[in-house]
């Protein structure tokens, strides 16, 4: 139990620290690399929760697939121009103050409310959670209980693809003319 807690805090620091680094780097490639580190941390949290399948998906899809695409896109965009521009507008201090205010509010609520969350939450799946059982359980709920959101997500992705095509066609026509 103790080791779990220690690991959780280590991963939390990793996730938050890398997230801050992601948004503060001037060079987009560095941002992308820090984002990968955030995603690895999240995969670690999933592992800690006994969700091996999700952790695997996180690594394969996000880090392996999406981040590589990100890097491809970044390589295709002229970087020098982007890096010379200022990252934050004059509202930096206002934004920081607002962020701290929200943090304080969340802290108060969590500290006061944590005691009332005494129920154990959703029951963990029965039996030893081996890798096959874990992915089996995910597959089962995905195609029974959550069939509709699963199918709806495919429409969502279709819309995203159409959007990407519409927008990228625009760019090509502009460069031609």
């Amino acid at each position: 139990m103790l080791i779990d807690q220690v690991l959780f805090y280590v991963l939390a620091v990793l996730i938050l620290g890398s997230a801050v680094m992601t948004i503060t780097r001037r060079n987009v490639v560095y941002s992308a690399v820090w984002l990968i580190s955030t995603l690895v941390g999240v995969a670690g949290i999933f592992l800690l929760q006994g969700a091996e399948f999700l952790a695997g998906v996180q690594v394969i899809v996000y880090i392996g697939g999406i981040m590589v695409l990100f890097l491809f896109v970044i390589m295709l965009v002229p970087l020098e121009e982007e890096a010379s521009q200022r990252r934050f507008s004059n509202q930096k201090w206002l934004a920081l103050a607002t962020g701290l205010a929200v943090l304080a509010m969340l802290a108060v609520i969590v500290v006061r409310g944590i005691g009332s969350l005494d129920h154990p939450g959703p029951a963990p799946p029965p039996g030893p959670a081996s890798l096959t059982q874990n992915s089996e359980a995910v597959g089962r709920v995905l195609f029974t209980e959550y069939l509709l959101p699963f199918e709806l997500a495919s429409i969502l992705l279709l819309v995203a693809i159409i959007g990407a095509i519409v927008m990228s066609k625009a760019r090509r026509r502009q460069t031609e003319s």
Binding site: Y146, L148, P149, L152, A153, I155, L156, V159, A160, I162, G163, V166, M167, K169, A170, R173, Q174
Partner: peptide
Amino acid sequence: DLVVLFVALETMALSFYVMVGFLRR
């Protein structure tokens, strides 16, 4: 159901983002 509602909301919103930017020039 929260998951259904959220994915539905995103489907709507994503379509609107593209439609709003449809005047590409």
